[in-house]
Amino acid sequence: MDLLRNSKKTTVLWVMVVIFLLTILISLGKGAVQVGVDEIMDALFLKEVTTNRQIIWNVRLPRTVAAILVGVALSLSGAILQGVMRNPLAGPNIIGVSAGGGFFGLLILIIFPNYFFLVPVGAFIGALSATTIIYLLAWKEGVMPTRLILAGVAISSIFGAGNNALMIFYPERVSGVLGFMVGGLSAITWKDVNMVYPFILMGIAAAFILPGRLNILLLGDDVATGLGMRVERTRLFAIVISSLLAGAAVSVAGMLGFVGLMVPHITRLFLGSDYRYLIPGSMLMGGTVLLLCDTIARVLFAPMEIPVGVIMSALGAPFFLYLLRKGKGNHHGA
């Protein structure tokens, strides 16, 4: 729709783009070795072989790209889910992506540690199957959002119990899986990035046809049906896209689901709940937030690293709460 462009919101989006680009530069430059902006540019766009170029290309860039992809995917997934469920608490965790992905990842890491390279694939499959189970359980002449959320909570807790059982039976292997549990991006290589980006790009592409539909879905199932929308089909499509996005994210970064809950809300405080703005806004914000947190995670106690999941919750959550308190009552559930 070309009508009703809101120039203020468009400006906010452009500001987000600028902040996003700046964050990329900061992320590439900061670390155990400091690299200046000019060197980053040289490294990215010239073919000269230098140590810094090696660092940028082989260490930082894959990680930066992964952080962006993961942040974008989780936030987008959360924004879509909050829309189709019309529930502010919806997020990738709710459709079982984190629990399912987490359990399968953990299962491989603990029981078959020699097959650790299968973790991303396993987590991805686990995430999607958990979503499928939850969707089927919630189905009864259509899927009611509330039932879906409750089924999600129940299934997640079953997987959670599985995780705990694994850790209790194999206490000696727990330290090796902590990174996966809290979510982190250390030791990311181009190989990981290559494995997930097709899914994430596919999800992003699909997400671009959703905003108009999500806006209408916010009016309620009955109104949406009255406007000629096939509500059930749209909801299934949106859930599949979200679980694809979040599943791919979990498979590289472990259990980082909180981003998916928080970022769409922060974005909504700035842009309102019109999905034509909220979707691109959440993507930009998600990439920025995760990248920023990951940079802090790398730099804060360098050369030691903190998992980004810890930074995310420790810094992100209070900031989120601050914004919520400050919000001028223009914050609506979904």
Partner: peptide, 27 residues
Amino acid sequence: LVAVLPQEKSLNVDLTVEQLVSYGRHP
């Protein structure tokens, strides 16, 4: 052909009147 206004309508939307009305063009 048929427009329906259900009794229960979501109030949880920050829309302008014009935006809401434009959704009527969806079909």
